[in-house]
Amino acid sequence: MRSDLLKDELKKLQIDYRIVLENALENIYIKDSKAVVDEINIFWFKNKKLVECILNYLHEPYTAYVFTAATILDIENYEHYPFVSLGQYHFWDDPIYKYSEIEANTDNISFGEQMRQQVISTIKDNINILDNARNIIYILPIRLFTNNDASEIHRAAQQAFLSLFKDNLDFDTYRNNFKTISDIKKGLITGIESIIIFSEDDDLSLDFETRFKNYRATTIFPLSTNSSDAEIFWCGVYGYLAQAFDIILMCLEYQLNPYIRFRVALQYIVNLSGNFGEIQELKNLVFKCIIAHTLHHTFDKKKIYDGNFKKYYQEIQNYNFENQLFSDLQIEKISIDNPSLDKMISIINKNLEKVLTKCIEIDE
Score class of each variant (00 low, 15 high):
residue 204 L to I: 14
residue 20 V to C: 04
residue 194 S to V: 14
residue 310 K to P: 01
residue 234 W to R: 03
residue 280 Q to T: 15
residue 128 N to C: 15
residue 355 V to M: 06
residue 49 K to W: 10
residue 270 V to S: 03
residue 124 K to I: 14
residue 256 L to C: 04
residue 214 N to T: 13
residue 339 P to K: 03
residue 111 F to S: 04
residue 76 E to Q: 10
residue 129 I to C: 00
residue 339 P to C: 07
residue 287 F to W: 12
residue 276 F to M: 09
residue 104 A to M: 07
residue 228 S to P: 05
residue 32 D to E: 11
residue 281 E to S: 13
residue 125 D to P: 00
residue 220 I to G: 00
residue 1 M to W: 10
residue 15 I to A: 01
residue 160 A to E: 07
residue 124 K to C: 14
residue 356 L to K: 10
residue 51 V to G: 06
residue 130 L to N: 00
residue 251 C to Q: 02
residue 108 N to T: 11
residue 91 F to C: 02
residue 213 K to V: 15
residue 145 F to R: 05
residue 146 T to L: 05
residue 289 C to A: 13
residue 194 S to D: 12
residue 214 N to Q: 11
residue 263 R to A: 09
residue 75 I to F: 05
residue 264 V to Y: 01
residue 326 F to E: 01
residue 44 W to Y: 05
residue 17 Y to R: 04
residue 89 Y to I: 09
residue 28 I to G: 00
residue 33 S to I: 15
residue 360 I to K: 13
residue 351 N to V: 07
residue 242 A to R: 01
residue 77 N to E: 12
residue 307 G to V: 08
residue 88 Q to S: 12
residue 208 F to E: 01
residue 252 L to P: 04
residue 251 C to F: 12
residue 304 I to N: 02
residue 309 F to Q: 01
residue 146 T to D: 04
residue 37 V to N: 01
residue 274 G to Y: 11
residue 252 L to A: 07
residue 191 G to A: 10
residue 106 T to L: 06
residue 304 I to A: 10
residue 201 D to G: 15
residue 205 S to C: 11
residue 143 R to I: 13
residue 26 E to S: 11
residue 65 Y to P: 08
residue 9 E to W: 15
residue 18 R to F: 00
residue 32 D to Q: 04
residue 131 D to S: 09
residue 183 D to W: 11
residue 119 V to Y: 08
residue 11 K to T: 13
residue 334 I to T: 07
residue 86 L to S: 09
residue 287 F to K: 03
residue 89 Y to W: 07
residue 215 Y to N: 03
residue 180 T to S: 15
residue 237 V to R: 00
residue 200 E to R: 15
residue 113 E to C: 09
residue 8 D to N: 12
residue 208 F to N: 04
residue 140 L to D: 01
residue 152 E to R: 14
residue 118 Q to H: 06
residue 57 Y to G: 02
residue 260 I to Q: 02
residue 13 L to P: 08
residue 88 Q to I: 13
residue 232 I to S: 02
residue 243 Q to S: 13
residue 318 N to Y: 06
residue 228 S to D: 09
residue 219 T to L: 01
residue 177 N to D: 14
residue 166 K to Q: 15
residue 72 I to H: 04
residue 15 I to E: 05
residue 340 S to F: 09
residue 206 L to F: 13
residue 106 T to E: 04
residue 202 D to Y: 06
residue 35 A to G: 03
residue 188 L to S: 13
residue 351 N to A: 04
residue 262 F to Q: 13
residue 235 C to R: 11
residue 69 A to W: 03
residue 210 T to E: 11
residue 130 L to K: 00
residue 223 L to D: 02
residue 152 E to F: 14
residue 215 Y to C: 09
residue 224 S to T: 08
residue 247 I to C: 05
residue 258 P to R: 12
residue 219 T to K: 01
residue 54 I to H: 05
residue 100 S to I: 14
residue 48 K to N: 05
residue 78 Y to P: 03
residue 265 A to H: 02
residue 159 Q to G: 06
residue 89 Y to E: 06
residue 177 N to P: 07
residue 325 L to A: 06
residue 285 L to D: 03
residue 169 L to C: 05
residue 299 F to Q: 03
residue 178 F to W: 13
residue 223 L to C: 05
residue 343 K to Q: 09
residue 168 N to I: 09
residue 43 F to D: 02
residue 280 Q to M: 15
residue 108 N to L: 13
residue 76 E to S: 11
